[in-house]
Design a protein around this nucleic acid. Sequence first.
RNA 1: GCGAACGUAGCUCAGUAGGUAGAGCACACGGUUGUGGCCCGUGUGGUCGUGGGUUCAAGUCCCAUCGUUCGCCCCA
Length: 417
Amino acid sequence: MSSIQKIKGFADLFSPDSDRFTFLESTARSVFFKYGFGELRTPILEHTEVFSKGIGEDTDVVGKEMYTFPDRKGRSLTMRPEATAGVMRAFIESRQYQPGGVYKLCTMGPMFRYERPQKGRMRQFHQINCETLGSDSPLADAEIILMLNEFLLAAGLDRLTFEVNSLGCNDCRPGFRQALTDFFAAIPEEELCDDCKRRRATNPLRVLDCKVERCKKAIEGVPELPEHICPKCRDHFAEVLEVLDASDISYVRNPRLVRGLDYYQSTTFEVVSGDIGSQSSVAGGGRYDGLVRQLGGPDVPGVGFACGMERLALLLEAKENGEMKQPDFYVALLDERGLRQSLLLAQELRGHGLSGECALAAGSMKSQLRRAGKLNARFALILGGEELDAKTVVVKNLQSGDQAVVPWEHAVTLVRG
RNA sequence: GCGAACGUAGCUCAGUAGGUAGAGCACACGGUUGUGGCCCGUGUGGUCGUGGGUUCAAGUCCCAUCGUUCGCCCCA
């Protein structure tokens, strides 16, 4: 192929792939609006510091996955690798925050990360995002988890598991980190995999969810987060869990659930699927109370989540059973003299809320009806020389084969049934 | 960034010890006058990802390159 190709890790979505995205977006909106969320659309491009300050300089995302480049005046810009930091920037910049107020924002759209593409992981991928700002109440955490659950169910996605954890706050997490580091330091090097040898220095929390058997064995008895968080965090988390228990959501506690973005603290959660390969996390989120201030705004607490639309779309696709769209009609044209009438008839029916297409060129009866059948239309409206002369049309029911010759203006009532 | 597999008609793929390409599906048109979905026939369509190399001769061997896929990593 010598024609121009799309960029690696980017995709063109035609129907029906694009339909799944549209469906996810619209069900998300209808669920979120019920909870009082308003939609915010922020730019795809931001000043780089929005992300380096917000997500954390030494995360993988910021360190090696961002599309960052200078603009024509040499300012460093970055294509957003996630939504939350940009939403916070917009929230701060708009100066709409009033102490005591609660703000619920949702956003959705493309994100960009320079990673090796694989199943469920694109360089341009799409997320659906929600943020509740201004409340540090555990009820806000619970509400957003319940809303996420409702959205996923509304999209027809079950067989997902919710995992929840608490990472502790800035007061208690350092202590836990230290306890981990001390614990790992005592493990002989040969008992860990190569990744974990590195990770225990760079990102000790990550060692917790290593999948290598050797490591799982080596870290038996490792300090667990729930035992190290401060009383305040413990109570907060307990209240979140109690509300979840009182609701009809099912979840599992995963004391080793760790998030890769620096701004997460306290409550964290993840939605995992076993049906879509190694990129199994379809949604994730948590509380990020320090983020707004980190970005130069007031001290506003927040909690939110992000869903990966490509991954949800994979699940939707797996559930589909090849049902075809069924338009109401197809105008089959046999005589070139009827070209205009073909369109006018279609317009008449569309004006009554019916869906369908008309022939844009005349053809043989065989080819025209084949086309109608291929489109899976309910009715074929046949326009031939005889019908044109008499200002009539044959309305043929393609399922039963029944047909009737009627004046143009009566076609609508037959198709409507 | 690391590893593995694969790149042949629009799609899914065959292609035998190297000798200038096939099937199914799809598409188009037919199977006697204006009636589809089944069946049958005919036809359109490929410089075998790209560039080098070995050879009398390469889709088939070698190298490189691009791309795809799956895993690692990371995350949604």
